[in-house]
Amino acid sequence: MTGRPISRRGLLRSALLGGVALGLPGCAPDDGPHRRLTLATGAPGGPYHAFGHALAAQAARTPPHPRITPVSTAASVDNLRRLAAGSADLGLAMADAAEQALHGAAPFTAAPARVTALARVYVNYTHLLARADGPVRSVADLAGRPVATGATGSGAQVLAGRLLRVAGLTGGRAVREQRLGLAESVAALRRGTVDAVIWAGGVPTPALSALARQLPLRVLPLESEAEALRAAYGPVYSAVTLPAGVYGLTAPVTTIGVGNYLLARPQVPDRDARDVLRVVFDRWRVLLREVTAGARLEPRFAVATGDLPLHPGAVAYYRSVYG
């Protein structure tokens, strides 16, 4: 049985004071083979699916060889529900959805989910895309139009709902939401059955790069919406920049950033959680290459998990890194 989750603030305070010992009562034994861990990922073709399968493959090749089985899901919200129900041991989720689950906010009002964080692994960039030859030239132009807002059960759909609310696109100005995953969203924008797509993922997202080579795109800036989301929901949101060159952009575009967490059930043995992190940090270049270009993973970034407490096995790993 694992010990009580420890907050990242306590971990950082201990590290900065020179590694004062943190009690980790009830840690699981470190002998015997690893148990097999089920990792809830996302839909095929999406970044969570790619990251999860890459992590499982690298774990099989990298000592101490934790055993990971990735499973396809609808992504963040679905993954959090699976973790809460015990049908997954590990999962990937966007930070805003994870905090909703932790606090029992919609769509998790039935009961808060007891989940812990292993790491913040990378940042999602919000993409609000329209056809360059289409009628959408600003966020306000979305009113009343069909917009792909992410698949049901995805973190993208949670983010899209909040974005539309802070942009005032509710009531009589509401968009006609189409609950579509990434592949379906791309196909719908190409066909013209939606006027815009809201997507959150790494940069570049391969499916969007492929679309931009076939169809000129307009990428809408979201700087004011990033500020509004941060004011309404806290530092889980930040302003980030899509660089010139991606998707045919001739200049940088400011948009909304939100972290992605690798999560674990509190019942995952401490040794297994620690060993999964060893693989993540040993092989981060390979893992992040699958989802976002040019990103790095460092411990001080990884422990920034907001309200989500760190798993005790993660605490043990980071203490070993900080010394």
Rank of each mutant, 00 (worst) to 15 (best):
I6W: 03
R8D: 03
R9H: 11
L12A: 11
L16P: 00
L16Q: 08
A21P: 11
L22C: 10
L24K: 06
P25T: 08
H34M: 13
R35D: 13
A40P: 12
G42E: 03
A43R: 08
A43Q: 10
P44H: 10
G45E: 05
P47Y: 03
F51C: 09
L55K: 13
L55V: 13
A56H: 12
A60K: 08
R61N: 07
R61L: 15
P63E: 07
P63Q: 01
R67M: 06
I68P: 00
T69K: 12
N79W: 02
L83K: 03
L83P: 01
A85L: 14
G86A: 12
G86Y: 09
L90I: 13
L92W: 04
L92A: 09
D96N: 11
E99M: 02
Q100N: 05
A101H: 01
L102K: 02
A105M: 02
A105H: 07
T109V: 04
P112N: 04
P112H: 02
T116E: 03
T116F: 02
R120E: 01
Y122H: 06
T126M: 10
T126W: 01
L128V: 14
A130D: 04
R131N: 04
R131V: 02
G134V: 02
V136R: 02
V139Y: 10
D141E: 08
A143C: 11
G144I: 12
G144K: 13
R145W: 11
P146D: 13
G150A: 14
A151H: 14
G153C: 14
V158E: 14
V158I: 15
L163K: 06
L164E: 05
R165C: 07
V166C: 06
T170I: 10
R176Y: 00
R176H: 12
L180P: 06
G181V: 09
A183L: 05
S185Q: 11
S185H: 10
S185N: 11
V186Q: 04
R190G: 05
A196F: 08
A196I: 07
W199Y: 13
T205G: 03
R213T: 12
Q214D: 10
R218Y: 05
V219M: 06
V219K: 04
L222E: 00
S224Y: 03
E225P: 06
E227P: 00
R230F: 05
G234S: 12
G234N: 12
Y237T: 09
V240S: 05
P243H: 11
P243T: 09
P243R: 05
P243D: 09
A244K: 08
G245A: 14
G245N: 14
Y247K: 04
G248M: 07
T250D: 08
V253T: 09
T254D: 00
T255N: 01
V258R: 00
V258L: 07
L262V: 06
L263H: 09
A264F: 03
P269R: 08
A273E: 05
A273H: 08
R274I: 07
D275H: 15
R278G: 14
R283Q: 15
W284H: 15
W284G: 12
R285H: 15
L287C: 15
L288I: 13
E290W: 04
G294E: 11
A302Y: 01
A302E: 01
G313H: 08
V315A: 13
Y318L: 11
Y318I: 08
R319H: 06
